[in-house]
């Protein structure tokens, strides 16, 4: 009997620990309501989910829309969270991250009148009621590569990749192009950790590049990159962050970050929905639309570098510089020197 009671108690504890957090919103007529579904990172993940919600908060302040979010504790919550917003008749549902692609597709097919937007996924672009928000990460990577090329003293920089996919390789093409345009003499050491969560491997790969002479390392590897940043801190060299302004993790080590401005994308899409101009298909956010950029924290950049990067930024926006984002474009311009694809 004792055993049964205890099993029950422990099973109860398991259920409790998996419960998700929900919030509800009040309705009002003359405005729109935007619902945001996070991935398992939760709304305060210091990354995509958080910055999406910040964009919506800005939209609430400036555009007077109403917005709310539902956090997903497990993969199984995506569909139910989307369903909740549909039941409450939200005008637009924003799904944060490619992990929600399947759930978004299923819901969009079931409710063709409901409008959806999904971040970092283009597989749903064939559906009329889904807007896919994509980012030109090659451009942001080009800028940080340019910074690295100008800043390196050993003429050797490093790159640690999380996984070799077409989307992830865009980081590599942009970075290599940026480094070489700023510094044609530079050597670029490249490693593929093949994981977004293996901090130990990230750390030892960064150590290998440091041993090879790198004095700046850029990571596009999620949590694996934490290990990269740590190795850079321990060895007193620069690291370059990704996705968000990672300066807060290691203010003395992070030179700059290649940012995706998910907040701007969420703000824009809400605005379009409010004005009735929202269309399906793929919307790509680039430097010109302030969808990607280098980090606003520039404390570790020298005046000259900052000035040079701002110039390059303008040239990209003007179209004077075209940043390669595919294997063909990259190899046509720089040769087959990117090892990880």
């Amino acid at each position: 009997m004792k055993k049964k009671c205890l099993s029950l108690l422990l099973a109860g504890a398991m259920v409790l620990s998996m419960a998700s957090v929900g919030m509800t919103a009040s309705a009002e007529e003359d405005t729109i309501r935007v619902g945001m579904v996070t991935d398992v990172g939760g709304v305060n993940d210091g990354s995509f989910n958080q910055s999406s919600w910040e964009g919506l908060q800005r939209a609430m302040d400036e555009l007077g829309i109403e917005a709310d979010y539902l956090e997903s504790a497990t993969d199984a919550d995506y569909a139910t969270n989307i369903e909740t917003f549909i039941d409450e008749e939200y005008d637009l549902i924003i799904c944060v991250g490619y992990m929600l692609a399947d759930a978004t597709r299923a819901a969009a097919e079931d409710y063709p009148e409901q409008k959806f937007a999904i971040i970092d996924d283009s597989t749903c672009s064939d559906l009329d009621n889904v807007t896919c928000l994509m980012f030109e990460q090659a451009q942001a990577s080009y800028l940080v590569g340019y910074v690295a090329g100008l800043t390196t003293e050993s003429n050797t920089v490093g790159f640690v990749l999380g996984m070799s996919t077409d989307t992830m390789n865009q980081f590599g093409y942009g970075y290599l192009a940026g480094v070489l345009d700023a510094n044609p003499e530079a050597t670029i050491l490249q490693q593929n950790a093949n994981s977004f969560s293996d901090t130990a491997t990230g750390k030892s790969m960064a150590t290998a590049e440091i041993t090879g002479g790198a004095d700046i390392i850029f990571h596009a590897a999620g949590a694996t990159g934490l290990g990269v940043i740590e190795a850079c801190t321990e060895n007193g060299i620069w690291a370059i962050g990704v996705d968000t302004d990672q300066s807060s993790i290691a203010p003395e080590t992070i030179l700059t970050s290649a940012m995706k401005r998910v907040d701007n994308a969420c703000y824009d899409i809400s605005k379009q929905c409010l004005e009735g101009t929202l269309e399906g298909g793929v919307v790509t956010y680039d430097l010109a639309s302030a969808g990607v950029d280098i980090a606003p924290t520039t404390d570790n950049l020298s005046e000259d570098v900052l000035e040079a990067v701002n110039e390059v930024k303008e040239q990209i926006v003007n179209g004077d510089i075209t940043v390669p984002s595919t294997q063909e474009d990259f190899e046509a311009a720089y040769g087959d020197i990117y090892e990880l694809d």
Partner: peptide, 30 residues
Amino acid sequence: ADQTISGTAINFLAPGLAIFLCKAMFDGSS
């Protein structure tokens, strides 16, 4: 109690508690 069940429960409970406390202590950040 069954040792495997108790251990499995701890594998859910301890990380859950860690994330809960982290959110409570650092402005909702996990």
